[in-house]
Amino acid sequence: MAAASVASALLAVTRKNPVHSMLWVLTLFLHVAGIFLLLGAEFLAAVQVIVYAGAILIFYIFVVMLLDLPDEEARPRFGKHWPLAAAVGLCFAALAWLVRAGTGVAPAATRLAAEGPPRGGLSAIGMALFGPFALPFEMASLLLLAAIVGAVVLARRRAAGP
């Protein structure tokens, strides 16, 4: 699963045709959902499929279709800084590996592992969201409100303008 998601991510970045890239991103999302499922996080897997694969990807495809496709295809796929970007990506992958290997990790992290497998079920997430994490949850809703107001303000004035 993990290997397949890395492979589809690589393919998504390297394909010349943006629509092909999008389809590879779709397979990436589905594989990530599969990983969540294997970890026992059914709710996250469902959200991954519905929100990311379902909604966000459709937005991407809309944007790709609204932009000029042939023009995009004609240009080289990468800017000249791609080795730098790849190096940074590899660095972060190495960091993730370090986290997993537990190099010099403080005792608290082992305590977390001792708590047993992560609980990703719907009721566990619900209890966490409205229990200890109620405040961040409400803050996120305020954030979304600001985003909605902002989108309306920017879009409406543009329509009214010249």
């Binding site: 961040p136 600001a146 920017l154 004035r157 303008g161």
Partner: peptide
Amino acid sequence: YLGLELMTLCAYILVGIRVE
């Protein structure tokens, strides 16, 4: 993080609010 994001998100819009 959420507080800072709320601030920055509003700031993006306030910077671009003169859409003409």
